[in-house]
Design a protein around this nucleic acid. Structure first.
Length: 778
DNA sequence: AGTTATTAAACGAGC
DNA sequence: TTTAATAACT
């Protein structure tokens, strides 16, 4: 949390920040020559000079929303004289928060911009809970569980309740729990309303899951919001304090807020009603995450007397791009009509490209971008490729690499998903919060140190029997029977190591943590070394040329960078423990887009979801195919289909000058080549704004022939095998019994068959291993 | 205890 | 194509 001081009583804040307000304008927004306002259009200005009372800015794509927001904040500070620490601006990602603060800094002073609170709902949650959490009985330091941690916690809960994971997939349970939390339904309430078998089971898991989180001093993402809402509900004095502090509230991307977020915002604004929401219902794309589009549609009902400003002129895109976007979004039936218009030039037509397969599609995109770069001098960082699902990035990536074109992928979390990085973080989490058993169990034998699965189970049982945390049980392991000397020695050594690190961090039991100024980087290096992770990564045989070790190096630089930022932000000297905790929080809250930087000089690859709020002169949206965009899972669900269309709309409206929308006739999914169907969205684009391109191979027959000519003997055999099991063929499997072949495909040397068995359902089998037997029909 | 081989299953988007 | 869980092996 390098951005701001802690949230405290406004009176104190007022005392220690002597900003001068000599230069106040006579009256808000009256000065026609005001440089803050004179380049704004009338509706933009109307929103920017609004001071008190609720304000809703319905901002169409590319209508200068960010400009309005930053000007309004600057106006509040410079012209109205509102103290910057009384302003709270909530953005969708931390990166957006950083950029907004930076843009405001160019209008107000550096130090004034630093006094603003600009953050996401989740980081606001972390900060409020850090400060007021004790009211709810929360520990002062808690772990934040990401979805992997959540998954493990749910699995533990299922195990404890003796529920089979095959009937109740953890992911589905988590989704249900998450939805409940977003609607502010806690475990008892959920249990009370559970009617069917599935919900009743989830209710049990929900209860157990919360118990685990609590014992581990951990919160999941949803808790970061839910607990804040509960704090406001049960502790009005804390809420009153915050209402005092945050006199002016601004929430961006309001169309993607969920119920808890609404409750939080509503509570904070209840007293003064100075809430400004900005957003666009046509860009609501997070319904699956619990976002409720009604929040923005019902704003005027929730906040009576709200002023509504519509921004409908687009300054970003060419006429053709905007025409395509508008025509597409008009197909959504559940939508308030909104006209989007522009005075920009018509520009090039939107190109709809059909290639033979995904490789050719990727090549097409890369070649066009190279062309634009070489012939028109378009910088790499002005171009972007969007796709519906992450797995589509691979082919594109390969082609960029082959063409030696610099690119970056917006997957900030991918780095932290690597095994060695997760392990390293797990060590740090345990040091910071030894109650965190999910992470403790992760590292207890990683790298292997002689504590087997069995030993670990014994320790856990020991802990349960003695009603102590697992961390405690490590120290008292000698008291438990059944551990041999060797195992015991290993456990003791591990416990000693943990104690040593905690002592250095000032978290040990005997020394109170008052160490100030020591280097977090040095500490992390020590943990990596002494834990054996570094050595393990160095000698890992499965590692491809030292990549793991390099990743650990990168982790250390990220720690260093965090410390540098703290120093730059003039943070008062922090204890090592505080720095550690701050670093872990930051790591937990990184978003995928947070990793993209404009000055990389590289083409950006990202999902359509991540593209929200960004813009690029050149954009390619790939894989406009039925089942991918719109996605398979939205089929037959009108609401979801409309969300898919909005997603496509968001992608289109990111483009300023050039837009390519591509599709492949055949695509390899799950290692299987499948013919594709053009996305319906392609057909919804207006003929006048598009140009259809058929990117066909010069001689498709030749391509097909060569595919067969190149077959090895193994592959030929695979093809022969496929011939023996045509769809419809009855077969017998040693375990699954009788069944009927549904589909058959060859991929490389393998032949896969989908078989519907009479008793065990549909299975996908690899014929080379499956011992399938042909059965003739009788 | 720990490593390696095999096999099944996953993939929807993310704070 | 990659990952997670399980079996087999050292």
């Amino acid at each position: 949390m390098p951005d701001d001081s802690t949230i405290s009583d406004p009176a104190n804040d007022a005392a220690h920040d002597p900003v001068d307000f000599d230069e106040q304008a006579p009256a808000p927004g009256r000065d026609p020559a005001d440089p803050l306002l004179d380049d704004l259009t009338p509706p933009q200005r109307e929103a920017a000079v609004h001071v008190d009372g609720p304000l809703l800015v319905l901002a169409g794509a590319g209508s200068g929303k960010t400009r309005v927001i930053t000007r309004r904040i600057a106006h509040l500070v410079l012209r109205v004289g509102i103290a910057p620490w009384n302003i709270l601006a909530i953005t969708f990602t931390n990166k957006a928060a950083g950029e907004m603060r930076q843009r405001i800094a160019q209008l107000v002073s550096e130090r004034q911009s630093r006094a603003l609170t600009v953050c996401t709902f989740h980081s606001l949650g972390v900060r409020l809970l850090g400060q007021y959490g004790h009211h709810l009985g929360l520990p002062s330091a808690f772990s934040i569980y990401d979805s992997a941690d959540q998954q493990r916690a749910v699995k533990t809960a299922l195990e404890a309740l003796e529920i089979s994971t095959s009937n109740f997939p953890p992911a589905k349970i988590l989704q249900t729990i998450s939805a409940a939390k977003n609607d502010m339904v806690d475990a008892p309430a959920f249990a009370a309303s559970a009617s069917d078998f599935f919900t009743k089971t989830v209710a049990k898991v929900y209860t157990k899951y919360q118990e685990i989180l609590q014992n581990n001093a951990a919160l999941d993402f949803d808790d970061l919001l839910f607990k804040v809402a509960l704090l406001f509900k049960h502790h009005p004095e804390a809420l009153a304090q915050l209402q005092q502090r945050f006199q002016y509230i601004l929430i961006d991307e309001y169309q993607d807020t969920n119920h808890v977020q609404f409750v939080i915002a509503h509570a904070l604004a209840a007293a003064h009603q100075n809430i400004c929401a900005t957003g666009d219902p046509d860009q609501a794309i997070y319904g699956w995450r619990g976002a409720n589009i009604r929040n923005i549609l019902d704003f005027e009902t929730q906040f009576p007397n709200a002023k509504v400003v519509r921004l409908e002129q687009n300054y970003r895109s060419t006429g053709n791009i905007l025409a395509a976007a508008d025509a597409l979004i008009r197909n959504n039936r559940h939508r308030k009509h909104k006209s989007l218009w522009t005075e920009n030039e018509t520009g090039e037509p939107v190109r709809l490209v059909t290639s033979d397969d995904e490789r050719q599609e990727a090549r097409y995109v890369v070649e066009r971008m190279q062309e634009l770069h070489d012939k028109e001098g378009m910088p790499w960082n002005s171009m972007a490729v969007f796709y519906r699902i992450n797995s589509l990035s691979r082919v594109i990536e390969e082609e960029f690499r082959r063409a030696v074109v610099p690119y970056q992928i917006a997957r900030g979390t991918a780095f932290y998903d690597r095994k060695e990085i997760k392990d390293a973080i797990a060590y740090l989490r345990v040091v910071s919060n030894p109650a965190d058993e999910v992470n403790l169990l992760r590292i207890i034998n990683t790298p292997t140190r002689g504590i087997s699965d069995g030993t670990s189970k014994v320790l856990q049982a020991h802990a349960v029997a003695r009603h102590t945390p697992l961390f405690e049980a490590l120290h008292t392991a000698a008291l438990s029977t059944g551990l041999n000397a060797r195992a015991l020695a290993s456990v003791t050594r591990f416990a000693k190591a943990l104690d040593g690190w905690r002592a250095e961090a000032g978290l040990g039991s005997d020394v109170p943590g008052t160490l100030v100024g020591s280097s977090l980087r040095g500490f992390v290096e020590r943990v990596l070394r002494e834990s054996g992770l570094e050595e393990h990564s160095r000698t890992d045989k499965t590692d491809t040329d030292g990549e793991r070790l390099a990743n650990l190096g990168e982790l250390i630089s990220s720690v260093q960078q965090y410390e540098d930022e703290l120093a730059a932000a003039d943070e008062p000297e922090l204890t090592l423990a505080a720095k550690l905790q701050g670093y872990l929080t930051q790591v937990s809250l990184v978003a995928d887009v947070d990793s993209v930087s404009a000055d990389q000089g590289a083409v950006t690859l990202m999902t359509l979801h991540a593209a929200k709020g960004l813009e690029f002169p050149v954009v390619a949206i790939i894989a406009l195919e039925d089942g991918l965009l719109p996605h398979q899972r939205a089929r037959g669900n009108e609401q979801e289909m409309e969300e898919e269309r909005r997603l496509c709309f968001v992608g289109i409206t990111r483009a300023r000058r050039r837009l390519f929308m591509t599709r492949a006739r055949q695509r390899t999914v799950f290692g299987q080549r499948m013919p594709t169907i053009e996305s319906q969205f392609m057909r919804e684009l207006p003929a006048g704004a598009i140009e259809v391109v058929d990117d066909q191979a010069s001689d498709p027959w030749q391509a097909d022939e060569s595919r067969f000519a190149g077959l090895s003997d193994q592959r030929r055999q695979a093809h022969d095998m496929a011939g023996q099991f045509p769809p419809g063929q009855m077969v017998r499997h040693p375990q699954f019994g009788l069944g009927r072949v549904l589909t058959i495909t060859t991929a490389g040397a393998q032949t896969r068959a989908q078989v519907a068995f009479n008793t065990s359902g549909v299975k996908t089998l690899v014929l080379q291993y499956a011992n399938l037997e042909r059965v003739s029909r009788t």
